[in-house]
Each structure stands twice: as structure tokens, then as C-alpha cells.
Amino acid sequence: MAPLVALLTGSLLARSVGLVGVDALDGWWPALRVGLALMFLVTGLAHFARARRQGLVAMVPPALPNPALLVTVTGVLELAGAAGLLLPATARPAAACLALLMLLMFPANYSAARRRLQLGGRPVTPLAVRLPLQVLFVAAALAVAVG
């Protein structure tokens, strides 16, 4: 749920700052960019946090090679995408790339849910919850990508 909280909180706070006079955040598009950037900062950093990394490595479908490397690469891509979202010139392509990345990473979430893995001592998000969240996250990224 941390990604959802980061997306919603970041977007609402950024929009509030825009409403009180910060022109760069005056509108839902820039506010959503900030919310997505915060979400990907949170999820990207999780790829490197000792407590979360092992669980993320375990989530990688067994058929894929070198799960630790895949977790590192996707973490770097998420952090780079978060930075790209904050720059208006790169926000659209960054958002499009992040939407694609989320689609490519969804099999790991599916695999983890089917295998009933634990992440940080808690079961991974069930598919009935994860799928609508994933649709929301991809839709938010696509909304930024198309403006």
C-alpha cells in the first residue's frame, strides 16, 4: 500500500502547493508527476533496502535468470524514471517508460501471489487487490505520458 499512499499523498500535496501560488505545480498534470515520482522513489529505494530486497528477489519468477540483477536493474530504472518525471522536458517519455516497466514487472507480482510469498514478513498483495492497483498506477503514468 505504500506506493498508493505515496502516489495519492504526493499528488495531493503538490496540487495544494500549486493552489497556494507555486506556478510549477499549478495543475493536476504537474501534481500527478510529483506523486508518481514519489511513488517510484519509494518503490525504487525498496529494491536496495536490505529488509525488502530479499523479498523482491524472491518475487522474480523462477524461470527468469539472475533475479538479484533484475531487481537491481528495475530499481535503478524506477529511480531514474522518478527523476525524469520531475523534469517537464523528460516527464512524458519517463512516464511512458515507467508504464511499460510496470507492465513488464507485473509477472513478478503475479508469480509472487500465486506462490503465496512473504514480503517483509507479510504476504504479498493478493491479485484481487494488486491488479486494480496496477491498473491505477499504469493509468496514472499514461495520463502523465499523454498530458
Score class of each variant (00 low, 15 high):
residue 147 G to L: 03
residue 13 L to Y: 10
residue 51 A to N: 10
residue 65 P to D: 01
residue 2 A to Y: 06
residue 25 L to C: 00
residue 25 L to D: 03
residue 66 N to S: 12
residue 90 T to M: 03
residue 53 R to C: 11
residue 17 V to Q: 02
residue 146 V to H: 15
residue 110 Y to L: 13
residue 86 L to N: 03
residue 129 V to W: 15
residue 116 R to C: 01
residue 8 L to R: 02
residue 73 V to E: 08
residue 51 A to V: 13
residue 39 M to H: 08
residue 108 A to T: 00
residue 144 V to S: 05
residue 10 G to M: 09
residue 70 L to K: 08
residue 47 H to C: 10
residue 39 M to W: 07
residue 11 S to R: 02
residue 137 F to T: 09
residue 2 A to L: 15
residue 38 L to Q: 08
residue 51 A to S: 15
residue 56 L to Y: 07
residue 115 R to D: 14
residue 133 L to S: 14
residue 79 L to M: 08
residue 146 V to E: 09
residue 69 L to Y: 06
residue 20 V to M: 08
residue 29 W to D: 13
residue 112 A to T: 01
residue 92 R to K: 15
residue 88 P to Y: 06
residue 7 L to D: 02
residue 69 L to V: 07
residue 140 A to P: 09
residue 99 A to G: 10
residue 138 V to K: 12
residue 99 A to I: 05
residue 91 A to Y: 01
residue 2 A to M: 13
residue 73 V to D: 10
residue 114 R to Q: 07
residue 124 V to Y: 11
residue 73 V to H: 04
residue 16 S to Q: 15
residue 75 G to S: 11
residue 105 M to E: 09
residue 140 A to G: 07
residue 98 L to T: 04
residue 137 F to D: 07
residue 73 V to W: 00
residue 28 W to C: 05
residue 42 V to T: 11
residue 105 M to K: 03
residue 66 N to H: 14
residue 58 A to N: 08
residue 103 L to E: 08
residue 50 R to C: 00
residue 119 L to H: 14
residue 75 G to W: 13
residue 24 A to R: 00
residue 34 V to T: 00
residue 8 L to S: 03
residue 2 A to C: 02
residue 92 R to L: 11
residue 95 A to R: 06
residue 87 L to P: 12
residue 52 R to N: 13
residue 103 L to P: 05
residue 37 A to G: 02
residue 69 L to W: 13
residue 84 G to C: 00
residue 138 V to N: 14
residue 61 P to I: 06
residue 112 A to K: 02
residue 59 M to V: 01
residue 118 Q to F: 10
residue 118 Q to M: 15
residue 139 A to H: 13
residue 61 P to K: 02
residue 69 L to S: 14
residue 96 A to K: 01
residue 136 L to N: 07
residue 97 C to T: 03
residue 130 R to H: 07
residue 139 A to W: 09
residue 136 L to F: 09
residue 34 V to H: 08
residue 54 Q to N: 04
residue 22 V to G: 06
residue 15 R to P: 09
residue 34 V to G: 01
residue 36 L to T: 00
residue 17 V to K: 00
residue 127 L to S: 09
residue 10 G to F: 04
residue 81 G to H: 03
residue 97 C to W: 07
residue 19 L to D: 11
residue 48 F to V: 05
residue 63 A to L: 10
residue 118 Q to D: 15
residue 56 L to A: 00
residue 115 R to E: 14
residue 81 G to V: 04
residue 6 A to T: 09
residue 112 A to N: 11
residue 33 R to K: 04
residue 112 A to W: 08
residue 102 M to N: 05
residue 49 A to D: 11
residue 48 F to R: 01
residue 37 A to S: 11
residue 99 A to T: 01
residue 13 L to Q: 07
residue 61 P to D: 14
residue 112 A to S: 01
residue 143 A to H: 11
residue 108 A to G: 14
residue 110 Y to I: 13
residue 1 M to L: 06
residue 23 D to T: 14
residue 63 A to V: 02
residue 55 G to E: 10
residue 142 L to G: 05
residue 104 L to Q: 09
residue 11 S to Q: 07
residue 45 L to K: 05
residue 128 A to S: 14
residue 124 V to F: 06
residue 124 V to H: 00
residue 112 A to Y: 07
residue 65 P to K: 02
residue 97 C to I: 04
residue 123 P to E: 12
residue 125 T to I: 08
residue 134 Q to D: 08
